[in-house]
Every structure is written in C-alpha cells, then in structure tokens.
Design a protein around this nucleic acid. Sequence first.
DNA 1: TATTGTTATACTCTATAACTATA
DNA 2: TATAGTTATAGAGTATAACAATA
Lengths: 157, 157
Amino acid sequence: MARAKESLTITTPPGEDAGDIGEIRDIVGFHLRLAHGAVYRHFTETFVDLGLTQKQVSVLWLVGDHPGIAQTGLAQRMRMDRATTMAIINRLEARSLLERGKSETDGRKQSLNLTDDGRAMLATAKEAIRAHEEWLKSRYTAREVQLLIELLTRLHE
Amino acid sequence: MARAKESLTITTPPGEDAGDIGEIRDIVGFHLRLAHGAVYRHFTETFVDLGLTQKQVSVLWLVGDHPGIAQTGLAQRMRMDRATTMAIINRLEARSLLERGKSETDGRKQSLNLTDDGRAMLATAKEAIRAHEEWLKSRYTAREVQLLIELLTRLHE
DNA sequence: TATTGTTATACTCTATAACTATA
DNA sequence: TATAGTTATAGAGTATAACAATA
C-alpha cells in the first residue's frame, strides 16, 4: 500500500504517538468528503436561484420517475430514515411542488405525486443538473466517468 | 454517453416534459452523495464512542501534522469558510482537545496546537480510522483504491 | 485596504425517541 | 407485533453579514 506520497510539509511531526497510519492524504474517506463538499458547493451555486437543495431535487426526480411512491420507498432509495424524509417532503409540499395522497392498497402508506408546479420545477432543475454535471464531468473522459460511477456505487449498494 | 443502463422500473414516466437528461442513476453527483452518506454513516457508528465527527477528526489530524497552524490555514486545507472553522475549533477547544495561542509572527492569527488529551484522542481516532478505512477499502483492489483517490482528488483540487 | 478572528443568525441534514393509525 | 407516518427535539455543518483588531 503506497503511503507518504507527495507529502505536503511534515511527515513525522513531534509528539506523534503509536497508531500512525500514514498521511491524511492516503485516507479515501478524506478525499470523498472533500470531493462531496466541492460538488455540494457548486450545486448550491447552480441552484441558488431555484431555491432547491440536492436532496430536494433528488426527491422531485424520484417522485417524477415513480408516481405514487410512498415515503418509505423514497427513504430506501435515498438511504434516509423516516424522519429525515418527512422533513424534506414537508418543505416540498409547503411549496406546492408535490402532494400527499392515501395509498389505495395500504392505508398506512402515503401516495406521493408531483403537482403541475412540481413537474415544471423538475424540468427546470434537470436543465440545471445537466449544466452542473457538465462542470463535474469536464475533468474526466467518458470512460473515467463510468469508472467513477462504478467505484462509487460499490460504496452505497 | 451511455444512458438508461440497468433501469430500475419506469424509463419514460407519464407527464415527463422536455429537458429529460436521462436516468438519475447516470448522474455522478447522485452517486457521490449516496456514497458520501454511506461512508458518513459507517464513520459515525465507528466513532460514536469517541464522540467525534469526520470534520473534528480531520481537524485534529491536521493540527497534529501542522503544529501552530492558523484557523485560516485549516480552512484552506479543508475547504471551509472562517465561520464554519470557528464552530469546529470551538467544540474541540471546549473539550480541551486543542488550544488557541497567539501567533508570534502575525498578531491577527491564532496558533493552534493539540493538548495532551488531544494527542491521545488523535492516536485513538487514527486506530478507529484504520478500521473504518479497511471496511471501506475491502470492496476494492489496491489499484482501484489509488484510482478512486485520484479521481476524487480531481474534484476538490 | 485587506486579512484574521469573532459573533450572531438562519437553514438544512441527520438521528433518536415516542406517539398514532393501520396491517 | 410490525410497519408507516408523524411530531418533537437535538446536534452538526454550512453560509452570510457585520464588527474589531491587526497588517
């Protein structure tokens, strides 16, 4: 396992005990967090006019693709718990972008659907996503994009 | 550009307008967010006993590697603004894991250093990080790990 | 003027716990 | 008993704005 590659400044600082596992630059989780943060910031800039967050766009998109989906269905696809899902659905419903209905097959479940405003918003959001993704993909070849998606998928599947 | 690969259920749902840019599964940002979330959750489980977050561990690590670093130095390395950095430093200082001092060369800057408790905590945290990283890397070959780091680095450099 | 630290403020995400209604 | 939704609560990260001290 490669380590201490391209060290920035100090490799063995004073006061370092045992348990040294190398440079922070060798930690995958560190790069994942920085990369996520960078993409999150660019996303926020792109979407500041629409007033939508990453999560909200994902929910709109999934509800658009799966009309009548229940909140638990969303939670599973987005790896969120019920309370977090509630908070996001509440905000989108308050803005009249989607609406809750009762499921016909299971009285416990909700049936989520986009409103006309929600569909229009989703179409606009997808255009913004396209620009955002172009910015993101501009640093990769098409093959590298596929590779990155495959590697990332292994982390959340 | 490949699209509509391994579609889950509905590929062309009713009510879909123009501006369709493909499946949400083709969006790099979507996978990046899910992957980050999965790693974040595992990290939280690993660190629940220590009571440290990703950001807090990263800050301890960087301060340990760069004794006397200023808050702006931390902010640059972690891509945070000053206010966010303050909030994290405040929590760590309140737990006596690091301490603020005045810089000798620039009266505006702070000089951050770990306390003895902070060094001990960092050593423990690095052990936990090692286990966390092994869990993460278990799904990759060594070459894929290097590749993933390189691809992620292009997003935040 | 620019930089650094600080404080105040606000929003989002995340998670836990407890409650209600339904299966 | 288990599942789905709901509500309340809390902590953490993120960002903006305004201010004081220093360069």
